[in-house]
C-alpha cells in the first residue's frame, strides 16, 4: 500500500474515529487499557450476542496510532463471529510482531504493516488489540 494512502487512512480514523464515545446500555462488558510505555488511556466496551460481536465502542485519550487502530479494528470486527474476530486479532498481532500473518484477513489494518520499523509505536498499535482480546477472554479457541 502506498505510504500516502496509509497516512490518509490513519489520519481519517484519528480525526474522525469510528464508534468513539461509550454508551450506557445493558449487555456490554468494559475494560480499561493503558500501557507503561505511553500515556494512552482508553476504555473499550463490547456486546456479544449469539456468539457474534454485535458492537464495540471506545473512548479516552490516546495518540494518533492507537486511536486510529482502535477505530479501524472496531470497524473490522463488528458483525464477525467470535472465532473469526479472534483470528483477525491474532493475525493483526502477528503482523505488528513481524511474524507470519494472512494479510487478506486484515483489510484496512494493513496500514500498520510497517509500524514495526518504529519499535516504540508497536505498543500504540497493539493497545486496542490488548483491550479487545481481554473482552473476548483471550485469543484461544474455545471449541
Amino acid at each position: 500500500m502506498d505510504d500516502n494512502l496509509k497516512r490518509e487512512i490513519i489520519l481519517d480514523n484519528y480525526q474522525d474515529p469510528f464508534h468513539k464515545g461509550l454508551v450506557e446500555e445493558e449487555g456490554y462488558c468494559k475494560v480499561n487499557t493503558s500501557s507503561d510505555s505511553c500515556i494512552d488511556n482508553l476504555d473499550f466496551i463490547m456486546k456479544i450476542e449469539n456468539n457474534i460481536v454485535k458492537d464495540i465502542r471506545f473512548d479516552g485519550e490516546a495518540c494518533a496510532i492507537s486511536t486510529s487502530a482502535s477505530s479501524i479494528l472496531i470497524k473490522k470486527l463488528i458483525g464477525k463471529p467470535v472465532d473469526e474476530a479472534k483470528e483477525i486479532l491474532l493475525n493483526y498481532q502477528n503482523m505488528i510482531g513481524e511474524e507470519e500473518y494472512n494479510e487478506d484477513l486484515l483489510g484496512e489494518l494493513n496500514v500498520y504493516e510497517d509500524i514495526s520499523k518504529q519499535p516504540n509505536r508497536k505498543n500504540c498499535a497493539l493497545l486496542p488489540k490488548v483491550a479487545i482480546e481481554k473482552l473476548l477472554g483471550g485469543l484461544g479457541n474455545d471449541k
Partner: peptide
Amino acid sequence: VFAQDTSIYLNHYHICVRAGN
C-alpha cells in the same frame, strides 16, 4: 494534537521533552 504525538514529533528533531500527566 495529542501530547505524546507532539513529543514523538519533536524526537524527530532530536528534541527531548516529556508528554503525559
